[in-house]
């Protein structure tokens, strides 16, 4: 159990296992490495995450989900933030470490088409 985290987050943390490793190697699962400290409290620099790509037929995003999104102003840059609020398919994304995060407070609401996927597993470094 990880103290201080929302209930939903606890289920995201996994220990490395052979099945996931195989899934990553064959490309069945997408994975990314965390850079920066804006999600500290949940994600640390160097943590590995996997995410489920968003299914346009069935958008299942909720407040509290950690998502991977395209940076709205910088091409080819991915950001990882938590959904703070949802306003008609526009997302207020925030970093858990609010004192050190560039997020919707400066970037504005993020359009749905910028959201790439939802984090489903976190492997702490």
């Amino acid at each position: 159990m990880i103290a201080g985290l929302p209930q939903a987050d606890k289920n995201l943390f996994h220990k490395p296992d052979l099945f996931t490793l195989f899934a990553l190697i064959i490309g069945y699962r997408q994975h990314l490495r965390v850079v920066g400290t804006s999600m500290e409290g949940t994600l640390k620099e160097g943590d590995l995450i996997t995410y489920k790509k968003l299914n346009p037929e069935n958008i299942d995003l909720e407040i509290g989900d950690i998502v991977v999104a395209s940076h709205p102003k910088t091409k080819n840059k991915l950001i990882i933030k938590r959904i703070h609020r949802i306003y008609q398919n526009k997302f207020d994304l925030r970093g858990d470490n609010s004192l050190s995060s560039t997020d919707s407070r400066e970037l504005g609401l993020i359009e749905l088409d910028k959201i790439i996927g939802k984090v489903d597993k976190i492997f702490s470094k």
């Binding site: 220990k15 296992d17 490495r33 965390v34 920066g36 500290e40 590995l48 950001i79 560039t102 400066e106």
Partner: peptide
């Protein structure tokens, strides 16, 4: 496995300031 996961090549996802 932990060691492999820590060294696994991966694209970066940014959790930081601009």
């Amino acid at each position: 496995l932990r060691s492999i996961f820590n060294k696994l090549p991966a694209k970066s996802v940014h959790a930081h300031c601009d």
